[in-house]
Simulated assay, not measured.
Amino acid sequence: MSETTPLLALPLIAAAQAQKHVTHNEALMLLDAATQPAVIDRGRTTPPGAPMAGDRHLVAAGASGEWAGHDGEIALYDAGWRYLLPRAGWRVYVAAERITLVHTGVDWSDLIAGTPSGGMAALRASEIEVDLAGAWVASGLVIPNRAICLCVASRTLVTVTGASAYEVGIAGESDKFGAGLGAAAGSSNIGVIGPQAFYADTPLRVSAVGSAFTGGRVRLVLTTLAFAI
């Protein structure tokens, strides 16, 4: 008889085993971690300095120290580190990024559809905060090459000064995702467009209306469909 369950590798109590509660409690801890799995983040290669009981992390590639040899596994802290080895079809929510990943049997992916050979489609959202100065500001947020852009939303975080309003767009189309946007803190816009493919990395920019920016801060959220073959 196997010493562990075939799917979650939960330890089984052996016949006439002493201290059965130890094995039973260990199985419960692993089951607790594997049920509705959610992790704090997925970018760490070494454990955090002061973990709390129940903390879970998705171990990044190239892990070292206590996490060495556990790349791609879910690390659970309980007075020490335990690990869950994922299988194809497992899903995990990454709280730091507010995304759900699925395990393909090879690695974790944000795909929403895929093929056996690795083709995939993914719906992605990313955000950035931009300090405003001058006639326009390159945001640092880029529509990727070979992606379909769906929307660029914006919110004024700190009241815009200098300019009477602002636009969100790209080079040559400064108002593609919104024109005459509010300078007051709290103003927002959802810049939905008809799905458009982009064939080069295309930075987003924020442009001043009326006069140059002398201050202010906005947040941009870019939503795209991405693909792989």
Score class of each variant (00 low, 15 high):
residue 2 S to E: 15
residue 12 L to K: 14
residue 14 A to D: 07
residue 15 A to R: 15
residue 18 A to I: 10
residue 19 Q to W: 03
residue 23 T to G: 01
residue 24 H to M: 10
residue 29 M to N: 08
residue 30 L to P: 11
residue 32 D to T: 04
residue 35 T to R: 10
residue 37 P to Q: 09
residue 38 A to V: 11
residue 40 I to W: 05
residue 44 R to S: 09
residue 56 R to C: 14
residue 57 H to D: 14
residue 59 V to R: 06
residue 70 H to I: 02
residue 82 R to Q: 11
residue 82 R to F: 06
residue 84 L to H: 09
residue 93 Y to A: 11
residue 102 V to G: 08
residue 110 D to I: 08
residue 113 A to N: 11
residue 113 A to S: 15
residue 114 G to W: 12
residue 115 T to Q: 13
residue 116 P to G: 08
residue 119 G to F: 02
residue 121 A to C: 11
residue 122 A to L: 06
residue 122 A to K: 11
residue 130 V to G: 06
residue 131 D to N: 12
residue 132 L to C: 13
residue 133 A to Q: 11
residue 135 A to N: 15
residue 137 V to A: 07
residue 142 V to L: 05
residue 142 V to M: 03
residue 143 I to Y: 04
residue 147 A to Q: 02
residue 154 S to P: 00
residue 157 L to G: 02
residue 160 V to Y: 03
residue 161 T to S: 14
residue 162 G to W: 09
residue 162 G to F: 04
residue 162 G to R: 06
residue 162 G to D: 08
residue 165 A to K: 02
residue 167 E to H: 13
residue 170 I to E: 05
residue 176 K to S: 09
residue 176 K to Y: 11
residue 178 G to F: 05
residue 180 G to W: 05
residue 180 G to V: 07
residue 181 L to G: 07
residue 187 S to Q: 12
residue 189 N to W: 14
residue 190 I to P: 01
residue 195 P to H: 08
residue 195 P to T: 03
residue 198 F to V: 12
residue 199 Y to C: 04
residue 203 P to E: 03
residue 205 R to V: 00
residue 206 V to E: 02
residue 210 G to H: 02
residue 216 G to I: 06
residue 217 R to Q: 14
residue 219 R to P: 01
residue 220 L to Q: 08
residue 220 L to K: 05
residue 222 L to W: 01
residue 223 T to M: 09
residue 229 I to L: 08
